[in-house]
Computed example of a mutant assay.
Amino acid sequence: MNAEPQHPHTRAAFYRRDRRSVRFARRLAQEALTEWEFTERSADVLLCVSELATNALLHGVPVGRGFVLRLTLHTDGVLRVELHDSGGGVVRAPGQSPPPESERGRGLFLVAALADKWGVGERNPGKIVWCEFEARGDRGAVHRRPR
């Protein structure tokens, strides 16, 4: 029998469809990363949180609804960031890079470049866009199993 992996550290919060929510989501992520001593990759994580939250607000959250940000630091040192929204639409893998003068279209390029893994899961209604980061020398080694 396989035991389900433990999630010793999880933070989650609901945010309304408001552009200030991106700032609040980043703040939650920063507090969690600091507490969990997952600091070496914090800039990458925070940028991905911002991009996923912004994408949710622009493309995934219907009027009158919001999104959930969930961060989980697993015992193997992998940090998973999930953005749950209740909107329709399909998240497509980044294709061609947008023109340099374009002000949009780089969010998932950044997530794909910075995260170790990323993807989209189903939710009813909506979807979950997620990304993962492996710890690399962070002091949070107490949370990782030996290799």
Rank of each mutant, 00 (worst) to 15 (best):
C48T: 05
L58D: 02
L108E: 07
C48E: 01
V78G: 15
V91K: 04
L69I: 03
L46I: 07
S97W: 06
Q30M: 14
V61W: 00
Q30F: 10
L58Y: 00
R106I: 15
P99M: 10
P100V: 09
R27L: 15
V61H: 00
V49P: 05
P62S: 03
T54V: 08
L71W: 02
G89T: 03
P62T: 01
F24C: 15
T54S: 12
G105Q: 08
L28Y: 09
L57F: 01
E40D: 06
V81K: 09
V90G: 04
R104T: 11
V111C: 13
V49D: 02
D44A: 15
V81N: 02
S97C: 14
G105P: 09
A29D: 06
R104A: 12
T75D: 08
F67G: 01
T54P: 06
L52N: 05
E101K: 12
E35D: 15
A56N: 06
F24H: 14
D76P: 00
R104L: 10
G107I: 00
R106H: 11
G64S: 07
V91Q: 03
L33K: 12
P100S: 06
R106F: 15
A25L: 03
A43P: 13
H84F: 12
T75C: 14
E31F: 04
D85Q: 05
E82Q: 09
E40L: 15
S86I: 00
R26G: 07
G95L: 03
C48P: 04
E31W: 08
